[in-house]
Design a protein around this nucleic acid. Structure first.
Lengths: 109, 109
DNA sequence: TTTATTCATTGCAATATTACGATTAACTTC
DNA sequence: GAAGTTAATCGTAATATTGCAATGAATAAA
């Protein structure tokens, strides 16, 4: 069906999945890494940096923006993007809690 | 196209995306959380625990197994699953490095 | 040996994702 | 205003994902 049954899972589980999903494409990972690498916003050169067509980049940016991980500002003809530090921190807390679960089980398998 | 252009990204970026993708579905998140919650392997009751049909669960387990995050052992008629602690740790290192990037940029947007 | 039980696999329908050409919108500059 | 620049949106093709009924395989119980 391609349609996840989100209603049978907890909010937390859906939230984790939603964050993870957006990281589930190398282009979005690359965009975020690039935004981090720079000491400032990216204005324009993302299409050259990542090797995808402009509409494709724009689409990936939209998904990142919808989750709040980046924010953009219109700056004349171009749009500047950067990481939304507050939301990134919030995301990190949710993901860390999931990734850092304590493993107190016997390795019985 | 639905087909990611993995060849234009680094191995690291693809690896992060691959891990994230598998966490990008609440059923797989729920399965992993359940495996962690128990102090032992899960033998059988996953279908009752998560609210999806048996073939669907089986498919999600397969994806988790393919990435090495869980391992399973045949135990009579049932199969027992548990977290693969070593691989989980390896995954955690990769994901943490990505999530914990230092934010030394000016918040110019 | 028959009958359950349990999980994997197959096949398929519905929906989602990825990518990009074409176009549009908004702004600059001439 | 006309022309150029940049990024968003639209439309569409190709592929992936999700979910489950049906079936199969393997073992256990009778």
């Amino acid at each position: 069906m391609g349609l996840s049954k989100t209603e049978i899972f907890t909010d937390k589980q859906n939230q984790i999945a939603q964050y993870a999903k957006v990281f589930g494409h190398p282009a979005r990972v690359a965009i975020l890494q690039y935004l981090y690498k720079l000491n400032a916003c990216v204005c324009g050169d993302l299409v050259d940096e990542i090797g995808l067509a402009q509409p494709t980049i724009s689409q990936h940016l939209k998904e990142l923006k919808q989750l709040g991980l980046i924010k953009g500002n219109v700056e004349g003809t171009s749009v500047c993007y950067c990481i939304d530090a507050d939301n990134w921190k919030r995301m990190k807390e949710v993901m860390s809690e999931f990734l850092n679960q304590d493993l107190n089980q016997n390795d019985c398998c």
